[in-house]
């Protein structure tokens, strides 16, 4: 049981949105799909759900290609930024429509969640505020009960209270009925404790694809007087470095040594810091010599 992306490439005019992306998304994990604007996250999710067709490569869901395949597509549900519902459709009818397409859609749960989030059922989807439009899509995603749920910027426009409620409900749902969840987001710090596997995209290519814990175990930050830090990092893989006065902080790929020189301080990196460091390292590599 998995989603397989095999050498997916997609170009829009002169922009290479995805370049030979190959991935396997295993059953029962919560994946974090991270990347800067234009990294190709939304394109990737749209290709996964056959909304966009790749120029090259194919997507398999449990071994079946998704192209025009209702059985494979029926196992996926994408909660995206864009609205695919008719302009005049009301929230209540959208739930009923979803229930007619997805046999496992829990209509009762959708109504319960709508009440919990304060989502008005009688309003047209297009007349909802940005926040409530996001809530509407989240309620669908949390009620649809498909084996794979894909969230693209799920908390867009949501206030802190509703964001917290969503993350709690997602974890609750996942613990009750484990499924595969893919969250594409810019709010890395908020999903850091949720995602157990991280995929980082940059310019249509995969920079990292590994369990979150493994990524975090293999990176650390060292700070101290600039000269000492420079000497310490001479033979190490530096992701990023920042100086402030005579002090310097360097993010390093690898395991910290137990006998660290006196005066240097080691700290664990957050996923967001790691992401930023990785992007900075990639930028440096791309700079012309």
């Amino acid at each position: 049981m998995s989603i397989e992306l095999q050498s997916i490439s997609k170009r829009f005019g002169s922009t290479q949105a995805l370049d030979q992306v190959s991935l396997t998304l295993e059953e029962g994990h919560i994946y974090g799909l991270l990347g800067n604007n234009g990294a190709g996250k939304t394109t990737l999710l749209s290709i996964l759900t056959d909304r966009l067709r790749p120029d090259f490569g194919q997507v398999l869901v449990d071994g079946q290609p998704v192209k025009n395949n209702d059985e494979a597509l029926g196992k996926l549900f994408l909660v995206g930024e864009q609205n695919f519902f008719p302009e005049d459709m009301k929230v209540k009818r959208a739930f009923e429509t979803a229930a007619s397409f997805y046999p496992d859609f829990d209509l009762e749960q959708a109504h319960k969640l709508a009440k919990e989030f304060g989502l008005p059922l009688k309003k047209k989807i297009t007349s909802l505020s940005t926040g409530y439009a996001s809530i509407f899509r989240l309620v669908l995603g949390l009620s649809v009960n498909t084996p794979y749920i894909l969230f693209d910027e799920p908390v867009l426009g949501l206030d802190a209270q509703h964001r917290d409620l969503f993350y709690r409900l997602l974890i609750e749902k996942y613990s009750q009925e484990p499924c595969t969840v893919i969250i594409s987001t810019h709010l890395i710090s908020e999903v850091e404790n949720i995602v157990d596997h991280t995929i980082i995209l940059r310019d249509g290519r995969i920079l990292r694809d590994a369990p979150t814990e493994e990524l975090m175990e293999n990176t650390y930050a060292v700070s101290g007087p600039a000269g000492m830090v420079d000497r310490y990092t001479e033979d190490k893989t530096i992701l990023s470095s920042h100086s402030l006065g005579g002090l310097k902080t360097v993010s390093i790929q690898g395991q910290p040594e137990s006998d660290l020189p006196l005066g240097l301080e080691v700290s664990r990196m957050s996923l967001q810091d790691y992401f930023i460091s990785l992007q900075e390292a990639a930028e440096r590599e791309e700079e012309p010599a």
Binding site: V66, L73, F84, E87
Partner: peptide, 16 residues
């Protein structure tokens, strides 16, 4: 177009 869009949201391929 509305139907094709709605079906895309609801896990239904273009052909169906």
């Amino acid at each position: 177009r509305q139907v094709i869009r709605l079906c895309a949201q609801m896990g239904t391929g273009r052909k169906t």
